[in-house]
Design a binder for these strands. Structure first.
Lengths: 134, 134
DNA sequence: CTATCTGTTATAGTTCATCTATATCAGATA
DNA sequence: TATCTGATATAGATGAACTATAACAGATAG
């Protein structure tokens, strides 16, 4: 199975699918041109309705992460910076980062330790197959 | 006004309140012993129902961030590590960090630039009034 | 051509989270 | 006593999330 989903979790299923795909791309498990499973296929694998998968794919398409043809299905794009929802992404992302880091700080995680974990996660990206370092 | 809330946003109001309080603590705008507005007062200021504020405060209490007495109202605690929802916090937080950083990576933000922004946010914390450096 | 896969779209229903609206009770306080 | 507070219960409206069918069109393998 490509994706690990928690059907009983608090996070909506379609958002979990989106998150897993984005992480897989960051990890390098999915590269430019990689094909995602068909909506009905993935829905069958996850034992959910295909509309839920459809919604997740549609989200990824809006964000410019994938490209969807009737021919080739859902395919990972190269330049997510061209999605229609890309304007103001940086600001919205920074706001979320701020909230997340504030949470760590309040829970007693020191600045250096927090920063170390950030670096650790970032280092775990790109240490796989493709991912040309430019 | 203490908190800035977007009533028409996608994020639930009670969660926005929670986020703003957590950020205010990280910023040092709220320190150990600081009193939060009463639920009805804050609800009136934000023009929302006091039950929504109540839910936000209850969330903060569950997470050990504040302490609520009938006497002194909602007061910022010192040790959020003693909340009942503290077990497994680190793991859950890292999962969210991973998702957030993957998003930045996929959107073309480089590792160094991402890490720089993390440091920038963290540096903005603790550079205010109270916050005894121990 | 037929069968089957795919994406796309539409409609409808259930369940649940969110928010609001009232109301009541009890402790604290002026 | 009057008023503020937190705590709690109930109820309703709205919308998000998910499911269930159904139908259509393009692509593809037999």
């Amino acid at each position: 199975m490509l994706l690990t989903i928690d059907l009983d979790g608090e996070v909506p299923i379609y958002q979990q699918i989106r998150d897993r795909v984005v992480e897989a791309i960051a990890d390098g498990d999915l590269v430019e041109g990689s094909a995602l499973p068909s909506t009905r296929q993935l829905a069958a694998d996850l034992a959910i309705n295909f509309h839920t998968v459809n919604k997740a794919y549609d989200l990824l398409r809006q964000q410019g992460v994938i490209r969807i043809n009737r021919k080739s299905g859902a395919v990972v794009r190269r330049d997510p910076a061209s999605g229609p929802a890309e304007a103001g992404f940086a600001e919205e992302w920074q706001a979320r980062l701020r909230t997340l880091l504030a949470e760590a700080t309040v829970h007693g995680l020191g600045e250096q330790e927090t920063l170390r974990q950030c670096g650790e996660v970032l280092d775990s990206f790109g240490t796989r197959k493709g991912r040309t370092p430019t």
